[in-house]
Design a protein around this nucleic acid. Structure first.
Lengths: 250, 250
DNA sequence: CGAACCCTTGACAGAAATCAACTAAGGTGG
DNA sequence: CCACCTTAGTTGATTTCTGTCAAGGGTTCG
């Protein structure tokens, strides 16, 4: 594993506060691997043997049932996923596949469970991370249950804008069909509804979004801090690098 | 606080493994209160000052937005809720109201944060609890995104049956309108769809459900361990009393 | 150049919400 | 005890939303 990768991982909230010696222990049996785009990294139902850390690229977490499939989250560098399954030593609830060519660190889950028993600071960081993940999924579930697809799209665009420092125009970070799946609708529905939102302050040009009238768009989305705003950095672990990502972190 | 209540709380997975002295510290500033049915205990957006433990009765966790409302989970005795908000010291994402007359223990969240820093066993129990909560919400989100309302109802009935040891007939644990909201549909839709399921192995008589043809019902629900089956007791904390409750625990 | 694949659009079907009316059960107060 | 009220639940009619199926345009990549 490359030194600069290790030090980048070290800066993640999850690993930042732990003892150096324990950090070394944790990554002792770990290995990095580069994967091409579109490769299935983990399959739902498999035993949770490794915590995954995305060092480079991006990874889609998705779920399948009865031949249907939906996107649950996107994890970008540098972020981790399937922590909860590793901790509980239970099967993954979601599958994961690379969206781009990606470099992934695989940390044996047994290391994980051993180390947080020895290192209280790491245990606190894990607690904080899990609480954050939990709150992110709760927001996602609230959005699915309370907003219809037009409102979800409008709110998503406004969240994106906020994560770009309030910019009015910006590229969509993922393919539209992926976005549709994440937002819980079909690509056709997304396409039509984006068109419909042109009379409500949003213009789409290819993969680029332009907010032409923020007030009108907000009137559709009715932004709410308890759905749309990511948690502020936690007082426990001192900042979460990925919490303001456009997709909920898993 | 009554002694038998304290010892019942002590048996919860979350508190079972911690040092006796720390358990006492944790509940030092805590107090119990009896509330009538239908009372709002916490409101979404409020600061998370107290971890709540339901000693008696049951509590609905629900979320509101733009005048709409939906049920997110039901917590029965003995179980806790809004742990994640307390840990992160951030606003509650959900509101809570009593469904029955209930006795609730309120544990100051500052106690919580102080104690799990000192007690590694408690920290591990918190990690396990949070990981379990996270996985429960992921299951819920998967169900919302992958199944339609007929499939959700059928699957819910089968989960209920499983939690009753496989019984074919049993009472519904909550009002139908609450159930509808939990399952992400209107009461009218639930009512109609229950009727529709009479030709698929399910009979509803008032508040009582009878599975008349399990195979046919399962053909609708297509049960899946990664959505429907609660986690088995975790190896970390040794058993979760509430994980097989008909509603996901929060 | 052709083969995928993404995206869009149209027509249609199905699912789900809404609005309204009605029943039944439970509780209250006269 | 009964009349009354409230509320949960059901049912029907209707509208709205969303998914499905099909076709065509555009792009990328081998």
């Amino acid at each position: 594993m490359r030194q600069h990768e290790l030090s980048e991982i070290r800066r993640l909230p999850l690993f930042r506060t732990m003892q150096p010696a324990h950090f070394d222990d944790l990554f002792l049996g770990a290995y990095v691997h580069a994967f091409p785009a579109g490769l299935e990294l983990v399959r739902q139902g498999d035993p949770a043997d490794f915590l995954h850390v995305v060092v480079e690229g991006q990874v889609e977490l998705y779920a399948g049932w009865a031949g249907r499939e939906c996107t649950m989250a996107i994890v970008r560098a540098v972020g981790s996923f399937i922590l909860a399954a590793c901790i509980r030593d239970q099967p993954y609830l979601m599958s994961a596949r690379t969206l781009d060519r990606s470099r992934i660190v695989l940390v044996p889950s047994s290391n994980l469970r051993a180390v947080f028993r020895r290192d209280p600071d790491f245990a606190v960081a894990v607690i904080d991370e899990l609480a954050g993940c939990y709150r992110a999924v709760v927001r996602h579930a609230k959005e699915l249950k309370l907003r219809n697809s037009r409102e979800r799209i409008a709110a998503y665009i406004l969240r994106l804008s906020a994560s770009m420092g309030g910019a009015a125009g910006f590229p969509l970070p993922v393919e539209k069909r992926l976005l549709a799946s994440y937002l819980g609708m079909t690509p056709e529905n997304l396409s039509r509804t984006l068109r419909l939102l042109e009379s409500h302050g949003l213009k789409i040009d290819g993969s680029r979004a332009i907010i032409t009238d923020r007030a009108r768009l907000a009137a559709v989305a009715v932004p709410d801090n308890l759905i749309d705003r990511p948690d502020r950095p936690s007082p426990l672990a001192g900042g979460n690098l990925t919490s303001d990502a456009p997709f909920a972190k898993a």
